[in-house]
Design a protein around this nucleic acid. Structure first.
Lengths: 331, 331
DNA sequence: TTGAAAGCGCTACCAG
DNA sequence: CTGGTAGCGCTTTCAA
């Protein structure tokens, strides 16, 4: 592997000059630059990015922490990040936090030890204060969470609005007895979506019926269990809004096990619009969460703020939107 | 940020000694080691991994190339890799190849420029020879493909067997008119699965009916289109085996659009057992592909061969297995 | 067991 | 516009 030194020798210039043509910032005469370029080509020279990082104190890598590496939701998000960052010549190091405070912190330390220039985080368990302190050590951009005092580092979806849209859609279709399967309420997004549900209800002058609200876990099994609870309670309902698509799938399966037809007997509303929601039967009516685009925006934020690429524009706030399919019917 | 130099000063030892206690290979007296450890703790010292990499010529990072970052299949695989490697203190850099030769090569060059110690590849488009040459530059481990001459670098599923198992299961349930929706036949795994299908057929003394075989694209839409073609051809069939779950979903949706009941009118068999297959209706009968475990094994291979961790055991060959659910019925 | 010192390959500052 | 050179923070001989 050729080094910058050999290139400089071959081109008959100094090592510094080679560095200049590589980085293209300082002025180099056309002739010199051509000599260098030729030497590089002849030697098939590739700069050593580790050495560059050490010397420049910039690793050109950004860390990304997601709850789980698998799962359609995070896949879209990582995909957006990877795409955007690689075109900028940066690389992304991924790690999983598993929605657990200790794991999340450990993963973050790991990423920091790798000298990431910035961290893109989708975290549930760590506190706001921790993130604020963390940002003093390494720049962070946070997806799906608003941190007071760090607002300009957050890429958010209006979860409350999404929750509202979901239930509003049900209400507009004349459902009045609407059950709700929430996510774990210690998670911000789960709480916000639930708030939206309540707002829609109250807008229609309906009280929140505690008996029709059950907490799930954002997973299929939890959705199924929640539906089981709902069905067992004997409280009638014509529709159930779920805080994410996975739980909606679980709920649909459970309902079917109880010989209920969807949407004839019960309408089901999801949230996230993960790819899977198009595969279910019936196709899931849900709220679109532009995860890929939000991941891309997090990457753009990094390009702009950290790598000083002022060309790229960043959008921080995203709006959810209703996706009508077949799992909800008009009453 | 404290450097090794400051630690050595504070501990009253040489810089080399600090390095020794960090790496724990050379002998250091108990007292000296404790002094150093104390100094490290007081200064909250973290080694600079970039400098370590430059000096040791080992980046402690491994590149991973998948076809798509999103998608349940690769998610499982990356998840397995990430888990295993992070516990070993290595980090994984991900990139997407999009099943396109130019993109795959570009992504590989990108990973190499990042000085990855090894590359874990799930590639479709590049040639065997390219991979053999590549391995001379950087050690590679290849998932889901057998490269002659590089067998010990391959982590494989017996795709042919899977294809056989799928069709065999259908035959065992007395299906005799079995359609087949293959993947793109330029892809190795698609071809192997198709071979398995043919073997099962011939084992039952059945000829391959070309009119019942259509090539898909491994995506939902392709599966739906293929089913459309099959239905239009007016050739009767009681079951369709699909080369992956996504196409099976597409096929099921298409069949349903044609007012066909699954499995009453037509049985559908998938392949991969991605998470989604549990969410479909009816639940998809499929062939399990242990993608997560195979990813983990690729990581183990790297730990063992590259990082010399002879503790970890590597398994290179995996067998698919039938997962019976509801989309196939006994005739 | 410990220390001194020579790099690893590159950037960036200072002169000229 | 170009060259010289001092690091970046660590690993790894070589001697002691």
């Amino acid at each position: 592997m050729a080094t910058i030194y050999q290139v400089s020798e071959r081109a008959g210039v100094s090592l510094a000059t080679v560095s200049r043509v590589m980085n293209g910032n300082a002025k180099v005469s056309e002739t010199t630059r051509n000599k260098v370029l030729a030497a590089m080509a002849e030697l098939n020279y590739r700069p050593n990015s580790i050495a560059q990082s050490l010397a420049s104190n910039c690793s050109n890598s950004v860390g990304m922490l997601v709850s789980e590496v698998h799962g359609p939701f995070f896949g879209e998000m990582m995909s957006g990040v990877e795409n955007e960052l690689r075109t900028a010549g940066k690389h992304v190091i991924i790690a999983a936090g598993h929605s657990d405070e200790a794991s999340e912190k450990e993963a973050i330390e790991f990423l920091i030890s790798r000298k990431c220039d910035a961290l893109i985080l989708h975290v549930d368990a760590v506190t706001d204060q921790y993130l604020i302190d963390l940002n003093e050590r390494t720049p962070v951009v946070i997806i799906n969470r608003t941190i007071p005092g760090l607002e300009d580092h957050c890429i958010c979806l209006n979860n409350e609005l999404g929750g509202y849209q979901a239930t509003k859609a049900l209400l507009d279709m004349n459902h009045r007895q609407i059950a709700y399967i929430s996510g774990p309420l210690w998670k911000h997004d789960a709480r916000e979506r639930f708030e939206g549900h309540k707002r829609a209800l109250s807008e229609f002058g309906l009280p929140l019926d505690e008996a029709l609200c059950v907490q799930g876990d954002f997973h299929e099994e939890g959705g199924a269990r929640a539906m089981e609870t709902l069905l067992a309670s004997a409280k009638p309902f014509t529709a159930v809004a779920c805080a994410n698509d996975e739980m909606a799938c679980g709920a649909m399966n459970c309902a079917r096990d109880h010989k209920l037809d969807i949407p004839a007997d019960v309408s089901v509303m999801g949230f996230d619009n993960v790819i899977m929601s198009r595969y279910t039967f019936p196709h899931l009516t849900t709220i679109d969460y532009p995860a890929g685009e939000m991941g891309r925006m997090a990457a753009c934020w990094v390009r702009r703020q950290i790598y000083q690429d002022k060309q790229v524009k960043v959008r921080q706030l995203f709006e959810p939107s209703l996706v009508l399919r077949d799992s909800v019917r008009q009453l």
